[in-house]
């Protein structure tokens, strides 16, 4: 049994009003420990709603959520501990910064966990280094930083709690390509270093393809499929009809394959594609 499991999880916004809306409908997922999973789906497919169930911020209308084998909402007093176990970084997390200094803001979560001074200090410095915030920034006010830096402070604030599961809701929204790559890179690095289970919510197939190994596709409040990268992208036509796109390079290489050129592997990133093409040309020249 995986670290995250749901059973017929359903949530309805505005029950009993004219604005009733089923945001997620009978979701059954089972995610193994240590996995790095991309969650994709069109706007309004229920991604954020599902994520907020995984640390007990929303109470299911029906169905169950199990984290590490423990049922959420079975015992309300355990909820806070579960929130430390499942770290959730919201969409546009920089708007939740409030402390006088970056240091104090990152320390907010660990402090709420009741850790000792030394342990807090270690965690703050370690995560700051991990997300690429220099020592000199720690004593600055978070409101003086750039958008991308603020985003990294907010992510560090959750990482510093060292949760067993880290969920990031659209961590790259509104950033330029460089900021985006930087965030995705640090998520990958964090995953590699800590072995934490990571859920990465995104609109962008490109982002997801670069970062994760398995993909959960949501469509109209339901799970469309949960599988590894290549089997998801193999259903490119269905994804396109749902308003999602397969990464452009993947499409180009699918087309090349259809034209009879052999590749060993699915291609998800431009860098990898470049190497592949260069190798191919090299081989051709030698023949």
């Amino acid at each position: 049994m995986g670290i995250i499991r749901t059973e017929d999880l359903t949530y309805v916004y505005g029950e009993g009003t004219p604005f009733r809306k089923v945001a997620i409908d009978k979701i059954n997922i089972d995610i193994d420990e240590g996995e790095i999973v991309g969650v994709i789906g069109h706007t309004g497919s229920g991604k954020s709603t599902l994520m907020q169930h995984l640390n007990g911020l929303l109470k299911p209308t029906s169905g169950k959520v199990y984290i590490d084998g423990e049922e959420l909402f079975a015992d309300k007093s355990r909820l806070k501990d579960i929130r430390f176990k499942v770290g959730l970084v919201f969409q546009y997390p920089e708007y939740q910064l409030f402390e006088e200094t970056v240091y104090k803001d990152i320390a907010f979560g660990p402090k709420n966990m009741g850790l000792g001074e030394d342990e807090i200090d270690r965690r703050v410095r370690e995560t700051a280094r991990l997300v690429g915030l220099g020592e000199e920034l720690l004593e600055k006010s978070p409101f003086e930083l750039s958008g991308g830096q603020k985003r990294r402070v907010a992510i560090a604030g959750v990482m510093a709690m060292e949760p067993k599961v880290l969920i990031l809701d659209e961590p790259t929204a509104g950033l330029d390509p460089r900021g985006r790559d930087r965030i995705l890179g640090l998520i990958k690095e964090y995953h590699a270093e800590k072995g934490t289970t990571v859920l990465l919510v995104s609109h962008s197939m490109e982002d997801v393809a670069k970062t994760v190994s398995k993909i959960l596709v949501l469509s109209d409040a339901k799970v469309f499929m949960y599988s590894d990268r290549s089997s998801v992208f193999a259903r490119a036509d269905e994804l396109t009809s749902m308003g999602l796109t397969v990464p452009q390079v993947t499409r180009v290489f699918d087309r090349l394959r259809a034209m009879g050129i052999e590749f060993d592997d699915e291609v998800f990133s431009v860098d990898y594609a470049k190497d592949l093409v260069l190798k191919l040309l090299e081989e051709k020249r030698r023949h």
Binding site: L57, R83, G87, P93, L97, G109, N112, G157, V158, M161
Partner: peptide
């Protein structure tokens, strides 16, 4: 929600503690 996810406790404790717990919400 975001502060609760970071373990902020808004519901329990003395009056002063609860007033203090509002700071992370009011400032943002």
């Amino acid at each position: 929600s975001a502060q609760k996810a970071r373990g902020a406790d808004l519901e329990t404790g003395s009056l002063i503690k609860r007033a203090k717990a509002l700071i992370p919400i009011l400032i943002p």
